[in-house]
């Protein structure tokens, strides 16, 4: 799952950090490189489309997504119901549209939680060093010592069925990559002259961490956060597919796919599985291509 787990710790050194103009041009260069990457641009286009669908689904769907009996159960796709109907006679297009909410919320919220937790833990470990670093590293290694999906399922079962708990459960399995990355950055940046200068002039530790070290590690952190989104969406899909999902009647792609799978496995037409499967695959592809583009653009020293 965690595709970036155990990646060699590539410490990207940024040219400056002290000179503001230099940073601005770095960002501008990066954006230009990103625009030239065709796959990344297409991916961004799809993600924008997905965002629109998600927002629209909050206010409008062709049919009420949870209304039972808008059509006959297992209606094959037709002009009236573009994706057909599920076993309870609910319009599948409406449900797939609404399902994007869960995926996007899980992806973005997890990335945010991991960003906060990973950055704080990583900065502290890297800057403090000593026993703090040792303890944090041991904890990180323990989390790497168990399959992440098992941790997520255990936490889900412990906490109960809700969207928030899914986000917590998934965050608990992907925060380590971010923490390791930030720790590495923090370890190297703390040795630089401008940090030493700040330290010598008596600046508070928290200010050094967030005003000096953090901004200089921002590039790789953002790239890493982008890759956490598809991992979170994928893990959520696994969880809901295995029956550990959001409480019904809320539609989510993994859950619809799971219903579709049991129909498929008993010899029914595969369309119920097909549409959420395509939706989830395209979303993950888009996030991964976008992340790749972002990395190539803003983190040029990191090898593909």
């Amino acid at each position: 799952m965690a595709t970036t787990t155990y990646m060699p710790e590539v410490v990207t050194e940024y040219a400056g950090g002290t000179v503001a103009r230099e940073q601005v041009s770095l960002w501008r260069d990066g954006l230009r490189r990103l625009r030239r990457n065709k796959l990344a641009v297409v991916a961004m286009g799809f993600l924008a489309f997905l965002a629109v669908v998600t927002v629209v689904s909050l206010f409008w769907t062709p049919y009420p997504p949870n209304a039972i009996g808008t059509c006959q159960g297992y209606t094959f796709p037709s002009p009236k119901h573009l994706m057909g109907c599920d076993d309870l006679g609910r319009d599948l297009l409406s449900r797939v549209m609404v399902g994007s909410q869960v995926s996007l919320v899980v992806g973005l919220a997890t990335a945010f939680v991991v960003l906060v937790v990973g950055v704080v833990v990583g900065l502290v470990a890297g800057y403090m060093r000593g026993w703090v670093d040792t303890v944090i590293s041991v904890i990180i290694n323990i989390f790497y010592g168990v399959p992440p999906l098992l941790i997520a399922i255990s936490l889900y079962v412990l906490l109960g069925a809700s969207l928030v708990n899914i986000i917590i459960a998934i965050s608990a399995t992907v925060w380590m990559d971010m923490a390791r990355l930030v720790r590495g950055q923090s370890l190297s940046i703390r040795e630089r002259e401008f940090v030493e200068a700040a330290r010598a002039s008596g600046t508070k530790t928290s200010k050094i961490l967030f005003a000096h070290i953090f901004p200089n590690a921002l590039g790789p952190i953002i790239v890493q956060a982008t890759f956490i989104i598809p991992i979170a969406i994928l893990t959520a899909a696994f969880l809901t597919f295995l029956g550990f999902g959001v409480p019904p009647p809320q539609a989510d792609w993994g859950g619809i796919a799971s219903e579709g799978f049991s129909a498929l496995a008993s010899g029914f037409d595969p369309y119920i599985l097909l549409f959420p499967a395509i939706a989830i695959s395209l979303t993950l592809l888009a996030f991964n291509f976008f992340g790749d583009g972002l990395r190539d653009a803003f983190d040029p020293r990191q090898k593909r």
């Binding site: 949870n66 209304a67 039972i68 009996g69 309870l88 079962v157 109960g160 069925a161 029956g243 550990f244 409480p247 019904p248 009647p249």
Partner: peptide, 21 residues
């Protein structure tokens, strides 16, 4: 989900579901 739908349709009451795995 059927029960929830019936109460919603016929009484206009939203009953939330509390599934327990």
């Amino acid at each position: 989900q059927y029960l929830q739908n019936e109460w919603q349709t016929n009484l206009g009451i939203h009953v939330s579901l509390n599934p327990d795995s």
